[in-house]
Write a protein that binds this DNA or RNA. Structure first.
Lengths: 345, 345
DNA sequence: TTGTAAGCGTTATCAC
DNA sequence: GTGATAACGCTTACAA
């Protein structure tokens, strides 16, 4: 009833009010003033609900991520927001924590018009049933188009392999980081990965293995410890690694958060970093450089990842075919003081 | 057109399909099956846009906060999400960074039906013009109701003082923390606050001053340093404090993030913590205990704050009068190893 | 228990 | 430039 009231007060038709709102240049100066006056008088605010309904779009984008707590994602989000603001989107965040979401749950968000598109940041569970209904591999929701989805940061489940993504080359990056440790003289290098149900760190583990193999070094099974990608998870993993014999002289953690937990646990065990054992992280979150010692880690351009992901999504929503290839953004090994030569032994 | 198609295929009216969706118990078993079959066949998903429009509500709540990066807010968000899920709301996040938003910009979110309610986490700028239009102190958007807004975490601008909030007693908490330092023997205690444009840390500074005064200690102007509530901000502040003479033997930081920056800068200056100088934080983010040394800080029940805030908002949206009093949740001083006796001097 | 039909606030397509 | 008016997809009296 609201545009109607404004129209009545201004003495024009509702069409004119609508025009005033959406393309004022098509309204005569004099009329414009009348409408403006009426709007001020009534305190009218256009009903976004009705507008979106009519237009058939929500102007909402859902971002799905494992945990907002991670400062790395905060960086990615910032990039997403920047583009979202420019493009007129609001961002809805869904945290998966550690539970498994079916892919259909994502796509339904779009088909039921809760959002115009979806960004998947990092791990999705690989436990999605193949071809169960709405999104087979050549996809389509009973004939409708594929939902606009772009993946940020990480390698993904096979079902998602046809969707575009923006990320660093995790494998190369991890290999490069591992080589840094090897160059320092380490031979026994441990790796703390995420849970095996998470894809977040899969590529990183691959890179680690590759660098080890290529250097002719053994990758003992008991040098790879698995844990939740949390401080607690890393603690448990370190506990496990320290119990091995011989134990690693360096630990590569699949992300910085885990590196922080690892460093703490190592200190509690009475070890000095890097004199007794080296620690390496991944992400270069803002805390990495203020740790004691500052953490050697692989930097990802978080904001850039966010921006590009969102930009690509916008194009997909706009109907462009954005292809399915991953866009690889550059990483950078940041050498600080948590890595050094192994102890004389 | 969609419910229509389903209705046609099922051989019933659209009203029946709608009923099946919203109150299946009012549909005869046999009919129910027909509808279900049709829905499966078509892959129909109700159009949330149309539904919300019709119902006049968005099922969205906007959370406005200075920065998602802060792990403390991540905890609060978790609490908000838990309740939101139960109550059927999705959460839209708006990051203010460091810019000043007008209050009208918030309230318009509700009046233009972009969301059903608003949660304001921590600082809002105090620079909002008084009584400029839509929301005077006895408020109302040209006669409409006050928008449902609940404030989480912090003391607020005078214009918002009539809105309900959920938070710890910052003043008492900060006073208690300061007394801990005094008890350890410190007399010269510095305070690193947020920017003066931010209300985030106002109450905490009050508490600090109160405890100092009450102990008969001087609060020198040059022992209070101001900076952005970031690692960088804290570094600058420490730099300033260390240049004072005599300089403080302990530094109370208005939050843990700043404490992390402070610790790093102190170490760079060659000072040992706590032997040479003590550091105290606020929030007890999850990183606090893995720092070296682990950080003494004031713990806030982040998730609980989030839950209660959201619960209260839900009631407000439901039309209940939830009053304007703040709900105070308990804080707890967590003593770790970053605080100790002052140096003999 | 089911169907008919009004209406939610916009935008878009026409004529004028 | 402006004004009628028909959608958009759904919920909900009210009638049958």
């Amino acid at each position: 009833m609201s545009i109607k009231q404004v129209a009545k007060i201004a003495g024009v038709s509702i069409a004119t009010v609508s025009r005033y709102l959406n393309s004022p240049e098509h309204v005569r100066e004099k009329t414009r003033r009348k409408v403006q006056e009426a709007i001020l008088q009534t305190g009218y605010a256009p009903n976004a609900l009705a507008r979106n309904f009519r237009r058939g779009r929500t102007s909402l984008v859902v971002v799905i991520l494992p945990s907002v707590g991670d400062p790395f994602f905060a960086g990615v989000m910032r990039g997403i927001w920047r583009v979202a603001r420019e493009e007129g989107y609001s961002i809805l965040i869904r945290e998966t924590q550690f539970n498994t979401l079916e892919f259909d749950e994502y796509s339904d968000i779009v088909f039921s018009k809760q959002a115009d598109g979806i960004i998947l940041l990092a791990s999705t569970s690989p436990f999605m049933k193949e071809g169960n209904g709405k999104l087979g591999k050549n996809g389509g929701h009973k004939g409708e188009k594929l939902p606009p989805i772009v993946i940020g940061c990480e390698t993904v489940a096979p079902q998602l392999s046809h969707y575009p993504s923006v990320r660093v080359d995790n494998e190369s990056a991890a290999a490069e980081a591992t080589r840094h440790l090897i160059r320092l003289g380490h031979r026994r290098i441990g790796f703390i990965s995420g849970l095996h149900t998470s894809l977040l760190t899969r590529g990183r583990e691959q890179g680690y293995r590759q660098a080890m193999t290529e250097a002719g070094l053994e990758v003992a099974d008991n040098w790879i410890a698995e844990g939740r990608q949390t401080i607690e998870g890393a603690r448990g993993a370190v506990h496990y690694l320290l119990a091995q014999s011989p134990r690693p002289t360096a630990i590569f953690c699949a992300n910085d958060e885990m590196a922080m937990g690892a460093m703490h646990e190592l200190r509690r065990a009475g070890l000095r970093i890097p004199e007794d054992i080296s620690v390496l992280g991944f992400d270069d979150i803002r805390y990495a450089e203020v740790l004691d010692p500052p953490l050697t880690t692989v930097a990802q351009p978080a904001e850039e990842i966010g921006e590009h992901t969102m930009q690509r999504l916008c194009r997909a929503i706009g109907g462009d075919d954005i292809g399915g290839e991953p866009e690889i953004v550059p990483h950078r090994l940041v050498i600080r003081e948590s890595t050094g030569a192994p102890p004389a032994d």
